[in-house]
């Protein structure tokens, strides 16, 4: 975080650290990406495993919230059916900006093995996705890595950039 060396002897012994507003805002944001519990199918088991004590998401500041108003990232874990597509869009719209989406597993990425009339062929037909995790199901390590990459992405962004509507597909 600190970009400038602090010389405590010269600044009167004060613990002063200099940074930019962007950096400190993004530092806070990236270390508390709260995830919306969005388990739809078997991938949800791996998402839950990532949250439990062995993999322990809490140490990244990622805590699962059951309300879209409190969540920053939506981890779409599982098969999205057409019947449900309306609700995922509504929940996405209810999340407060800034918000991100991780599409977890083949089903969420492309419809996976469910090449049928009832499955949405990729959540990116409905909501903009920031990160795609391959796998069926991805291991908790993959999800952890995705969250860490997302943190890097957040830290690189400008903190108060105007929120452009993200392009779909």
């Amino acid at each position: 975080m600190a970009q400038h060396q602090v010389n405590y002897t010269q600044s009167g012994g004060l613990p002063v650290a200099l940074t930019t507003v962007d950096k400190i805002l993004n530092w806070g944001r990236s270390n508390s990406v709260w995830a919306l519990t969005y388990g739809l199918a078997c991938c949800a088991i791996e998402m839950m495993a990532s949250g439990a004590s062995r993999y322990d998401f809490d140490r990244f500041g990622t805590i699962f919230r059951a309300s879209p108003r409190q969540a920053d990232v939506m981890i779409v874990a599982g098969t999205l059916t057409k019947k449900h597509s309306e609700f995922i869009r509504r929940l996405y719209d209810q999340m407060t900006e800034p918000k991100w989406v991780i599409s977890m597993g083949s089903c969420a990425n492309t419809g996976g093995m469910f090449n049928t009339y009832a499955t949405v062929q990729g959540v990116d037909r409905i909501i903009p996705v920031d990160m795609y995790l391959p796998g069926c199901a991805p291991r908790p390590e993959t999800l952890q890595y995705a969250v860490m990459l997302l943190q890097q992405k957040i830290r690189k962004e400008s903190a108060n950039k105007s929120q452009k509507p993200k392009r779909l597909v």
Binding site: K82, S85, E86, N115, T116, Y117, A118, R125, I126
Partner: peptide, 12 residues
């Protein structure tokens, strides 16, 4: 059809 008719494919 297994992959759905036109209505099903564009439903969402």
């Amino acid at each position: 059809p297994l992959e759905g008719d036109e209505f099903a494919q564009w439903y969402e």
